[in-house]
Nucleic acid binder design. Structure first.
Length: 915
DNA sequence: CCAGACTTTT
């Protein structure tokens, strides 16, 4: 008997006093809650035929258990009334526990049943399967088979077939099905079809399906879902046609299987047709169907439809909420997603692991560092990290995206299980935070783990890291590996390779690779356009853009960022302005801050500083740091102190953290010798706790990338490097090199200045290159910051003395560069962003030019620098009258500085050597 | 009393 306390708690309605059995039953049904029912059945045992009534009453009792504790009370009741040994009731009890999700209690109950029948076993088996405890289900099956002496029936196989973990188990089970003669059972056969298709053996599945004498809807669904889950949309739709021609109607399950492949096959028409069918047949009421619809529309990016389906749902479950949140999150609307998440919580839905995955992504899109810690804590408290790798990967990714790369690393180390995606996330994280050498290091660690097999995502994250530091050799090794498995033809991987070759100055290789990868999407186009832009081939960029339009590829916002940057670097002001117009009017793209920044850069770099300022004033959105930064950069190029200091005031209002801008401003003052202003800016930066980003240069020698910082004395070959530099400097001086101390932004003695210039990172790297590579081979240097003008000069001399081609591309002064396609997810959304470094790329800098070859100079160099360079080139080659340099823009045919209009500053000079 | 087929994932 339940204890008296409990009995007192239960207040029976007055109708219970009635002893008549039918009224008693009505009462139980009306109050379908266990405790009154238990009490009633104990206090008022039903009359009439015992056996008949006993069953019915217990059925109601079982039905009324909706919580585990009630099931336990019922269990107790069965024990006290001596019914626990009843095979029928105890089997129901096993089921009850299983239905309530307590598999271990079900197992306990199961174990306590002395004589089990096949129903009992089947119940236990299906309980294991339903809760994903597949190993135990299969073990249980073999136990039944070998130890119980019972014969499995047709109910036994479907759960076991679902539970089997690999094809070997599956084939063994298939043998048992045949041996025991169950292959003609519709359910068993459908389960076999499903199992084979799950392991990708679609031919066997199809064969079995064709041989089925009777097919019910479930069998058709098993076959269709088999094809769907293998991404085989065409076959799935064929089966659907067959099914409909046999007069079988689609049910919610069919629809829910088919909808995801519509998104996969990129076929919105079929998807909408199915939606019509759903509406017509009223299948919307099924949560699975509506959820699948939401997901499909989300994948097509049609958020309006997704939202409408969601709003019209009468019953929403956790999956519905997860789906709609993920829909907004994946379509770059984190704020709406967050709003929905809050609403979901208010309505009392408990977030699950997948909600947390979306949440992590939302937080990283909002780049909200504070919340990222909250999300982490939220997940730790629920012990989800041990449950699933996915969530761990998501959080590693989140920390990396909000810039907390150290937290990302720490968490990565702590993950109980790591898969290839975990590694990819960390590599991508380092790469996106500009820490390319760390990314490479992690990649090498990953290669040491034999069990982790790199995939597309790995290549897409490591290749940009290689191109970041200019590790062409290592990148090419990867290229070799990719050729073996044909992955280099993958759009994203191929694009990364194009980017690598392009960034490393191998534009020809980049182009030939570009023509091999599929180019129906804008992704590879953006990369190749950007690469040409970086190297100042403005005309080539325009050609490529036209070609892109001819081939019917729709340019996206990234295309225009690359295009505008390219115009800016090649001084194509009018073209740039035209593209800005085309983008809005013809392509319907609303310009983002990046586009505005590029436009300011375009105008400013060309010397139209007032126009650039007016442009900023007329912007419909609030200008951010990148826009003011572009203006400041332009002021530095053109030495406009006044506008520069104005721009920097605005700049520090929106971003006072980026040390690069302080450096820019102090350079502006230093160039005009306003040292006290320089000091002021420096102390301002110091007071705000900012440290100058150390400039580095890197060089790849023997598959290893060496990075040098200015004044670096820790390199193993340090002594030789400085020795070489001394020799070089002496020879340079004899050839007329005069160190330009204006680039030393410190007020020190001249010989100290000379030493500072000599130990600039770039020169250390070059010297190291000269002593470590065979004579005459090309030296490729990579830098993170802008080159200093003196190094730029010195490099030309060194190139001539050492008879080496020296290539030095470099980046923005802010050291900020959004690097290419990092991370699959991003690339899928064509975020193939390669903001062009504002480069000064010369080929060959020393003027060693073969007939027909051309030189290119672009970027930060002022027209006079360019002119000087070109003259040097001509002199260096002992130019004759019939040697001439053809200029693409701005500079007249001969190098007569008098004819140059200083307002029309050329930014690309290409020269041709005609002997 | 027990069975199959279906939606969300970094």
């Amino acid at each position: 008997m339940p204890d008296s306390n409990q009995a007192n708690l239960i207040r029976l309605p007055p109708a219970c006093k009635c002893r008549h059995i039918s009224k008693f039953r009505l009462l139980l049904q009306a109050h379908c809650s266990l405790l009154p029912a238990v009490n009633s059945s104990l206090q008022f045992p039903p009359e009439g035929s015992e056996n008949e009534n006993k069953d019915i009453d217990f059925k109601i009792l079982f039905l009324s258990c909706s919580k585990v504790y009630r099931a336990k009370q019922l269990h107790a009741l069965l024990m006290v009334s001596g019914r626990a040994q009843d095979i029928f009731l105890s089997t129901r009890l096993v089921n009850l526990y299983a239905n309530l999700g307590d598999v271990s209690f079900a197992r306990n109950t199961f174990d306590q049943i002395p004589k089990k029948n096949i129903f009992t076993w089947n119940s236990m088996l299906s309980a294991y399967t339903r809760f994903g405890r597949f190993r135990e289900a299969v073990n249980c099956f073999y136990h039944l088979l070998l130890a119980s002496g019972l014969r499995p029936d047709s109910y036994t196989f479907p759960p076991v077939l679902k539970a089997c973990g690999n094809i070997v188990d599956g084939e063994k089970l298939h043998c048992w099905v045949l041996k025991l003669g169950f292959e003609w059972d519709v359910f068993v056969a459908a389960s076999l079809v499903h199992m084979y298709s799950r392991f990708g053996f679609l031919c066997i599945a199809r064969q079995l399906f064709n041989n089925m004498p009777v097919r019910d809807l479930g069998s058709w669904n098993a076959m269709i879902s088999g094809f769907c889950q293998n991404g085989n949309a065409a076959e799935a739709l064929d089966v659907l046609d067959e099914m409909r021609s046999e007069g079988v109607k689609m049910d919610p399950v069919t629809v829910a299987s088919l909808l995801p492949v519509c998104a996969l096959a990129d076929d919105i028409v079929i998807g909408m047709l199915i939606h019509l069918y759903v509406v017509k047949h009223g299948l919307e009421a099924d949560v699975f169907v509506s959820n699948a619809l939401i997901n499909m529309y989300a994948k097509f990016g049609i958020l309006g439809h997704a939202r409408r389906v969601f709003e019209q749902m009468e019953v929403r479950d956790l999956v519905s909420w997860n789906s709609i949140i993920a829909a907004y999150e994946q379509n770059d609307d984190p704020n709406t997603a967050l709003g929905l998440f809050k609403k979901m919580q208010l309505l009392g839905f408990r977030p699950d692991l997948l909600t947390a995955v979306s949440l992590a992504s939302i937080v990283s899109q909002l780049s909200d560092r504070q919340s990222s810690r909250c999300v982490h804590g939220f997940i730790v408290r629920r012990h989800w990290f041990v449950e699933d790798v996915v969530i761990g990967n998501a959080v590693v990714d989140m920390y990396a995206k909000v810039g907390a790369i150290d937290s990302s690393r720490t968490l990565f180390e702590e993950l109980p299980v790591k898969d290839v995606i975990s590694w990819n996330s960390l590599i991508t994280g380092y790469a996106q935070n500009g820490l390319a050498s760390e990314a490479i290091e992690v990649y090498q660690m990953m290669e040491e783990h034999r069990e982790i097999i790199p995939n597309q995502g790995t290549w897409v994250s490591i290749l940009p890291a290689y191109s970041h530091v200019g590790a062409l050799q290592q990148g090419m090794r990867i290229h070799g590996r990719l050729i073996k498995n044909c992955l280099y033809l993958d759009v994203f991987v191929g694009t990364c390779l194009v980017d690598l070759y392009g960034k490393c100055g191998r534009l020809d290789d980049a182009m030939s690779l570009f023509y091999q990868v599929p180019r129906t999407s804008s992704v590879p186009w953006n990369a190749i356009i950007s690469c040409h832009g970086i190297h100042g081939h403005g005309d080539q960029t325009l050609k490529l853009f036209n070609q892109m339009l001819d081939e019917g590829v729709k340019p996206d916002h990234v295309t225009f960022v690359s295009l505008l940057a390219a115009c800016s670097h090649s001084g194509l002001v009018d073209e740039g302005q035209r593209f800005f117009y085309v983008m809005q009017e013809k392509c319907g793209i609303t310009p983002s801050l990046k586009h505005y920044g590029s436009m300011v850069d375009l105008l400013g770099r060309a010397g139209r500083l007032e126009m650039a300022y007016d442009f900023i004033k007329n912007m419909p959105i609030q200008p951010d740091a990148s826009v003011w930064g572009a203006l400041l950069g332009a002021c530095r190029i053109h030495g406009n102190v006044e506008l520069g200091s104005f721009a920097s005031d605005r700049l520090f209002e929106v971003d006072s953290e980026n040390v690069g801008y302080y450096v820019l401003l102090s350079n502006i003052y230093a160039n005009v010798g306003k040292w006290e202003r320089v000091d002021k800016v420096r102390s301002l930066a110091r007071d705000r706790g900012l440290k100058k980003t150390p400039g580095w240069s890197s060089i790849e020698v023997n598959n290893k990338v060496d990075v040098f910082y200015t004044g670096n004395q820790t390199h193993p070959k340090c002594v030789e490097i400085y020795k070489e530099l001394k020799v070089l400097t002496a020879r340079m001086k004899s050839l007329g090199y005069i160190p330009d101390y204006s680039f030393v932004l410190q007020d020190v003695e001249d010989d100290e200045k000379e030493h500072i210039l000599m130990s600039h990172s770039e020169r250390l790297a070059i010297a190291f290159g000269i002593i470590s590579t065979p004579p005459k081979s090309t030296i490729r240097i990579f830098k993170n910051l802008r080159v200093c003008g003196d190094c730029h000069e010195a490099t030309k001399f060194i190139s001539r003395i050492a008879e080496r081609e020296i290539i030095v591309p470099h980046e923005d002064e802010t050291g900020k560069q959004v690097r290419g396609a990092v991370g699959i997810k991003n690339t899928c959304k064509s975020h193939f962003q390669t903001t062009a470094p504002k480069s000064c790329y010369m080929r060959p800098p020393g003027g060693i030019l073969a007939p027909g070859e051309s030189i290119i100079a672009t970027g930060n160099s002022t027209s006079l620098e360019l002119l000087y360079f070109a003259q040097q080139f001509v002199r260096g080659r002992q130019a004759r009258r019939n040697h001439y340099v053809r200029c693409t823009r701005g500079i007249p045919e001969s190098f007569d500085s008098q004819k140059i209009n200083p307002n029309q500053r050329p930014h690309a000079v290409s020269g041709e050597f005609r002997g």
